[in-house]
């Protein structure tokens, strides 16, 4: 289930990245590559487990769906940290006084 959810996230983020390309101010390229990397790895894992051990290709259970959600949350968190550290809108660099006032 997490393979399906990660694949879907990879396809959606790649489409959003392409719509905005070549402008990648908000690092959507990074987010899509994170999702694609995980999708490829889980796909290989699923294929080999299916061929070698005869396991089901997709594990469709509530626990697997919850893991899929947790994986997406982690990827979004990593992307958001990278986004805030790079600060493309210069929010933290140009307006430090505004944060002190509030």
């Amino acid at each position: 289930m997490w393979l399906i959810m990660t694949s879907l996230a990879a396809i959606i983020t790649t489409a959003i990245w392409y719509i905005n390309a070549p402008n990648d101010k908000y690092k959507l390229g990074l987010l899509s590559l994170i999702f694609w990397g995980a999708t490829i790895m889980w796909f290989v894992d699923a294929v080999m487990a299916h061929l070698i051990d005869g396991e089901d290709f997709f594990e469709i259970t509530p626990d697997a769906a919850l893991l899929g959600l947790a994986v997406i949350i982690l990827a979004l968190t990593v992307w958001e940290i990278a986004l805030l550290l790079s600060d493309p809108k210069k929010i933290f660099k140009n307006t430090p006084g505004q944060f002190q006032k509030s």
């Binding site: 994170i34 990397g37 995980a38 947790a70 994986v71 990593v78």
Partner: peptide, 20 residues
């Protein structure tokens, strides 16, 4: 950097799956 982003992204997400 494309390769590194795919590898590190995959590793981080797979690490979560292994912890899970």
């Amino acid at each position: 950097s494309w390769l590194n982003k795919m590898l590190w992204g995959g590793v981080i997400l797979l690490a979560l799956e292994h912890v899970w």
